[in-house]
Amino acid sequence: MAAPSLPSAPSARAFRALAWREATLLLTAPAVWAGVLLQVVLGVLWYSADEPRWAAFGQEAGLSALVLAGFLLLTSHLAGSRDHRHGAAEGSSVLPASDLRRTGAVLALIPVGGVLGAVALGAELVAASPRWPEGPLSPWSLAMPVLIPMLGAAVGVATSRWWPTTAAGPLTFFGCTALLAMMPVFGQSPQSLSWVLFPVLFDDGHVQAGMAAAEAQGGGGWGVAAWHAGYLAALVAAAAAVAVLRQRRLIPAVVLVLAVAFGLVAVWQQHPDLGPAPGAASPVSGSQP
């Protein structure tokens, strides 16, 4: 009765092929490149109204990266919910690629989001060259425009795995937008938690003081920007773990707990650094969330 087994592709190779396919599908989506273009245009526009300082550049690049993050949230949700939205779940369920492998493959959209964020950041840097930023620079502050689009993609994938209906992507997008828009309501000073939780690192006196302190330590200290980047990375890891929780329990649950714990540490670490900067009576300059 038994027929000779067909040669089967090693799962790592099959996973790579699928992840690459998902990545190329995302990279060929016009909406994604529209998001990149919009991020660059807005980043350049906002920075042109600021003093040419690294802190201001980082803030505007971060805020404009939220636009790309929104596009990536929607497109990665569409990618992750493709089968469900088009009634292909039954046919796909009998294919050799397991749900876990497929979730892993769409998680490849997260680093792709980072690459797109880096491309947009590079374009913004090129556009800023006539008014090259000055002042203290934490390299970590340039990680934010890369991490924020990754976070958008991760949230989109996580939503698609748990809530694959067509409406879920836009609803999550509006939910995230509303949450970000409401954050200033809960506190507009750098000491407030909502200030620290906001994905973008703002150009205020406290942040500048934190960056200066990190620079004074020879750049070896973590500083505000580094902890904030760590906080964003923890959010990305947490969202990815939530996506995988649909298929596996233990390892993603451990990753989720560790990510949340690290995120809390990163948030807590930003508070001591955000002490009043010398002569910074008004904590805010530039755009607010």
Binding site: A9, R21, H86, P96, A97
Partner: peptide
């Protein structure tokens, strides 16, 4: 190989692109 009663097809994919995607899911690497 399975053809369900209601086969869902991704409307925005091109014909060959859809088959290529399914082939990847079938581990044709």
């Amino acid at each position: 190989g399975y053809l369900p009663q209601d086969p869902g097809l991704y409307p925005n994919f091109k014909t060959a692109e859809l088959l290529d995607y399914v082939a990847v899911l079938k581990e044709l690497t």
